[in-house]
């Protein structure tokens, strides 16, 4: 877990306004965050802009992440990049919403026990996804990794919207049961 510790330490120095630490944090993590943005947006220049916007939020909210604790530092940054990218994808939406969301994530993190528990669950998600019937695991992945909406998922799998919603909710119930075992 050395890398997690290092990122966490860079993030907490960033919270103190340490630009050098912020620069190192960028160097260590921007590949992943750019990957996240590219996966959702599939366009280099938009993804680059979203990447910058994500790091601006990270710079501004680093303090709250450090104070709130909870989610892993990398998980927190990926969440910011993913949400910023999805917001850009659905451009009509108010960017402020997502600012509030990152506030809350930082402010009301789960307890350490819940994090440990969730971390175990995180490792299990691939196994649990593979137990779903074929296109259903793809629907969950499409929603998470590519930021697809119900309407886009319906189109992608050529099924009615209500069907895809039912699929996905059942998949989520299965996932939760599988992960809670």
């Amino acid at each position: 877990m050395d890398q997690t510790d290092e990122i966490e330490s860079l993030l907490s120095r960033t919270a103190l306004g340490d630009r050098q630490a912020f620069s190192q944090l960028y160097d260590r993590t921007s590949g992943k965050l750019f990957g996240v943005a590219m996966r959702v947006l599939r366009d280099k220049s938009t993804a680059e802009d979203v990447l910058q916007e994500s790091y601006i939020k990270i710079w501004r909210y680093a303090e709250r992440f450090a104070a709130g604790g909870g989610v892993s530092p990398m998980g927190w940054m990926v969440t910011i990049a993913r949400n910023t990218a999805i917001d850009r994808l659905r451009a009509g939406r108010d960017a402020d919403d997502i600012d509030e969301m990152s506030d809350r994530l930082a402010d009301r993190g789960p307890t350490p026990e819940q994090v440990a528990e969730a971390a175990g669950e995180a490792g299990r998600i691939s196994t649990c996804l593979s137990q779903l019937d074929d296109p259903r695991d793809k629907a969950v992945r499409g929603a998470y990794l590519e930021g697809l909406s119900y309407a886009e998922l319906a189109e992608k799998f050529s099924v009615p919207l209500n069907t895809v919603r039912t699929w996905l909710r059942r998949s989520l119930i299965s996932l939760r049961e599988c992960m809670d075992q």
Partner: peptide, 17 residues
């Protein structure tokens, strides 16, 4: 958020310009 974060490993890193 933590549960889904297991899928983060599936995202390939891409060096930004």
């Amino acid at each position: 958020t933590a549960r889904f974060s297991g899928m983060n490993a599936e995202i390939a890193e891409i060096t930004p310009p």
